[in-house]
Design a protein around this nucleic acid. Structure first.
Length: 577
RNA sequence: GUACCCGUAGCUCAGCUGGAUAGAGCGUUGGCUUGCGGAGCCAAAGGUCGUAGGUUCGAAUCCUAUCGGGUACACCA
């Protein structure tokens, strides 16, 4: 309907003023109407007339053009045109679904990107939560989404870890691994990485040994060596890391269909970069292979180091080529910390030189760091940083203290919502107490709001007076339908209309969040929706009221939209809490 | 030094493709109350939108400068 109105308004503008304009209807404050446009203000200058006069002329035509769906068109302020839709149009709008704007598109979403042998820190949790939400948005718009993950199982950090592991095991002694209890494995590896990093910086002998081990790990991949003592240690501990990741993703509800290890991308990366030495895209410099980003206002980076080993840059090139081969995608979305922004621009610029279609279809989104309220920036290199489990534990502890219980779904909902309600980009200050609070703008508040609405519907069902299809027990985002029967022809009383108006914004909000890849729009909307409902509910009885049928429909629609929105954010909406 | 990100109420944040009195939550103060889950609702106080210019009929939003915070800048990932 919104789209239809926009097109009709644009046509009227064309007819009256001969101007091509992109009309975007916005949702004004309720007192002004249901939709608003500022075309008259924009047009005023172009046609050399007073904005209110322009609005007058448009309004007159629009009354015919928009037909009987619009009950009233008013001009307000400097020249805004406000549309009031009639109740049956509003009732129809309640059934509108988000646009399938990405139907038949193939999208690859890469995010999370933890490195084997290292610990999962708060940033991984943040990226995973954001990535899931963005992937969900793209998927609901009709795209086939491939959620993939990427991480460094080769590289200097592996050399550092191996060095420390050998020290712990007393040499290349894989049998010693059996001594490490299963529950301690990931911690043990993380500690080895920190120890190796320190040695690398402080001890020249160790540094040389680490550099050598790094090379040997590459060789081990090249030779497909699974038998030598070092190989046994490497493959076993790498698997420990993957097991640890799997447990973590299962806990937070993330699912990846593929994990690209760098060991599988570096050959293609090396090959691709070397191929483009001849055409000058990459160049040799001081024994290394670089891309001269300065030419493009970026900075220069090393892709292959002077020992002939690929750096992260070449591996990223390889990954990019692999994704193209594997998925033939229409669009690729990569989500990382903002520390990688400039680096990624250099890599993408270099790829653009030989594969422009790839660079053009790739979007790199970045987010800031997670900090605890009053906390410190984390650094995985030094070992004093906020781990993913620290965040979850903090939420769990706060939940116990505040709500006398730490239901896992509530804790996850709290953390995810706290991460997703802010526009991504800047750093995020995470306050565990606030996030688990059942009051205010929090995940648990919304989960509770949903449970409460379900409770009303349950009670009505028990009395045999339920609206049709009020349960979304299957928990899918599709279960938002309510038949346009029984009282939904649109005789809303004022309080009902306010609620209906807010509910009807859902598809527009989802469309905008999808178009901009900004899940926080959903979070903001859901909170406003819940507030609107609570205001309605405070003063309007549902069950045993003369208007029960209509109101139950609204409650059902509200609960379904709330649930769908939460699911898009990766947050569960239980029927009871 | 160069580039990018951020600076909105005491705190945490929306609002940013320029538009109607700058909005929430927390906190503070006051009110509603045996309720279909009050984990709610109503109201008040609280803002030179970092600062200074500029563009515009109109700027939190665009441009420039500047201050403050963060990040990245050759063989780490």
């Amino acid at each position: 309907m919104k789209q239809e109105f926009e097109n009709k308004i644009a046509a009227v503008v064309q007819e009256l003023f001969g101007q091509m304009v992109q009309v975007e209807l916005t949702r004004p404050e309720e007192q002004f109407g249901d939709y608003a446009t500022n075309v008259a203000l924009q047009l005023a200058k172009q046609v050399g007339q007073n904005p209110r006069d322009v609005a007058e002329q448009l309004t007159e035509k629009l009354r015919e053009a928009l037909g009987d769906q619009v009950s009233e068109i008013t001009i307000a302020g400097p020249g805004f045109i406000n549309l009031h839709i009639n109740n049956s149009a509003l009732a129809a709008a309640l059934k509108a679904e988000p646009t399938q704007s990405l139907a038949n598109k193939i999208v690859v979403a890469e995010y999370s990107d933890p490195n084997p042998f290292k610990v999962l820190h708060a940033g991984h949790l943040y990226t995973s939560v954001i990535g899931d939400a963005i992937a969900n948005l793209v998927e609901q718009a009709g795209a086939t989404v491939h959620r993939v993950n990427y991480g460094g199982d080769v590289g200097l950090h592996v050399g550092k870890t191996m060095w420390a592991l050998l020290a712990e095991l007393g040499g290349e002694n894989p049998d010693g691994l059996a001594q490490i209890p299963e529950n301690d494995r990931s911690e043990w590896l993380a500690a080895a990485y920190v120890k190796g990093t320190q040695a690398y910086e402080e001890d020249e002998t160790a540094k040389a040994a680490i550099i050598d081990l790094n090379k040997r790990v590459y060789t081990l991949h090249a030779d497909n060596d699974h038998d030598s003592p070092l190989a046994q240690i490497y493959w076993t501990t790498r698997q420990w890391s993957y097991d640890y990741f799997d447990r973590f993703y299962a806990r937070i509800g993330s699912h990846f269909e593929k994990y690209y290890p760098e060991s599988e991308t570096f050959q293609l990366g090396l090959q691709t970069v070397r191929e483009h030495l001849a055409d000058g895209i990459y160049q040799e410099s001081d024994g290394a292979v670089i891309f001269d980003g300065d030419k493009y206002g970026l900075h220069t980076r090393v892709f292959i180091n002077s020992q002939g080993l690929p750096t992260y840059e070449a591996k990223e090139v390889g990954l990019s080529m692999l994704k193209v081969q594997d998925y033939h995608f229409d669009r690729s979305i990569i989500i990382t910390s903002n520390e990688q922004e400039q680096y990624m621009r250099v890599v993408l610029k270099s790829i653009e030189q030989f594969a422009p279609e790839f660079a053009n279809s790739t979007t790199h989104l970045t987010h800031g760091n997670v900090k605890l309220q009053g906390g410190v920036k984390m650094s995985s290199r030094l070992g004093n940083f906020l781990r993913a489990v620290d965040v979850l534990d903090a939420a769990s502890t706060a939940a116990k203290a505040l709500n006398d219980g730490d239901n896992e779904q509530t804790v996850l909902g709290a953390v995810k919502y706290a991460f997703l309600k802010n526009r991504m980009g800047g750093d995020l200050i995470y306050d565990p107490q606030e996030s688990v609070s059942l009051e205010g703008n929090s995940g648990p508040y919304l989960q509770y709001a949903h449970a409460r609405a379900r409770s009303i519907l349950r009670k009505a069902a028990e009395q045999g007076t339920a609206a049709e299809n009020t349960s979304a027990a299957n928990g899918t985002a599709e279960s938002v339908w309510v038949p346009a029967s029984a009282g939904m022809t649109g005789e809303f009383d004022p309080a009902e209309r306010s609620l209906a108006r807010k509910i009807s914004e859902y598809p527009e909000v989802v469309d905008k969040a999808t178009a901009d890849l900004m899940p926080h729009y959903i979070a903001t909307y859901l909170y406003e929706l819940a507030q609107t409902f609570n205001r309605f509910y405070e003063h309007n009885r549902v069950i045993d009221d003369a208007r029960q049928a209509m109101r139950l429909h609204l409650v059902a629609l509200y609960a379904n939209r709330l649930q769908s929105g939460l699911l898009l954010l990766g947050i569960t909406a239980p029927d009871k809490m």
